[in-house]
């Protein structure tokens, strides 16, 4: 069916002669309320509460969160974790992330591969053990990390390995999902400038499809570790 008929049919069913013109500002339907209930939109935790809740929620989902006072402590923590996991290959997402978090030294004992470009990387990352990424935001309410498909960030590094390690800063944690949208909106909602994907990850991959028995690590990672540098009150 052609587009015009499709919309014409919808309009007719709604009792209108013509479909609403989405470009005309006047056509925007009036709304009494948008989004979550008011009490929830007003809900906001302080820095410490956000940090504590994020860690508790992620743990509840079967992931883990470790908070470090300094960046160097975090680096030591990551080194210890990698030693424990002793992966044959560590995948990292690209961009300035490694440099910004000064992870070169920590990663140097491992064989490291950086995600450069799909589709070349897919085969190489298909059976990788550990993926290390940053994140763009996190949500305290649900223990969620948010990864955007921004320039240089190969977000599939979070999905393909068996273990996903997120290196992040406490200041990235928001109280609830709505605040993340607000931040993304501040960058402009122009579709051409939005990242092609924003993925919200809450704990390891799971399924209960076999006799309602919960298992983790179905398609995505079986373990999610968040290493958080507490970069101060914000």
């Amino acid at each position: 069916m052609n587009e015009q008929e499709f919309f014409q049919n919808i309009a007719r069913r709604l009792g209108r002669e013509f479909p609403a013109d989405a470009n005309a500002a006047a056509a925007a339907p009036a709304r009494t309320s948008v989004g979550a209930p008011d009490f929830w939109q007003a809900h906001e935790w302080n820095h410490q509460e956000r940090l504590d809740n994020f860690a508790a929620e992620l743990a509840r989902l079967g992931g883990s969160a470790q908070v470090y006072e300094t960046l160097s402590a975090l680096q030591e923590g990551l080194a210890a974790l990698l030693l424990e996991l002793s992966p044959s290959l560590v995948g990292v997402w690209g961009g300035e992330f490694i440099a910004k978090m000064q992870l070169q030294g920590v990663l140097s004992p491992c064989k490291v591969m950086e995600w450069v470009e799909q589709p070349e990387m897919i085969e190489q990352f298909a059976h990788i053990d550990v993926g290390v990424t940053g994140c763009d935001f996190a949500i305290a309410d649900t223990g969620t990390v948010v990864l955007l498909a921004a320039a240089g960030q190969g977000r599939l590094v979070s999905l393909l390995p068996s273990v996903h390690i997120v290196v992040m800063k406490a200041s990235q944690i928001h109280t609830r999902m709505g605040e993340v949208w607000r931040d993304i909106e501040l960058r402009g909602l122009d579709p051409a400038h939005l990242p092609s994907t924003a993925i919200f990850i809450s704990g390891p991959s799971r399924s209960s499809d076999i006799e309602n028995d919960l298992t983790i690590g179905v398609h995505g990672p079986a373990a999610v570790h968040a290493l958080i540098w507490d970069d101060g009150k914000s």
């Binding site: 690209g94 960030q153 994907t197």
Partner: peptide, 24 residues
Amino acid sequence: ATGQKVITYMSVITGPRRAQERCG
């Protein structure tokens, strides 16, 4: 649906991969 507080993966997809992006 399942009594979960949150879905494990929520993907928000806006168009195909952009020129500067590395996957999708």
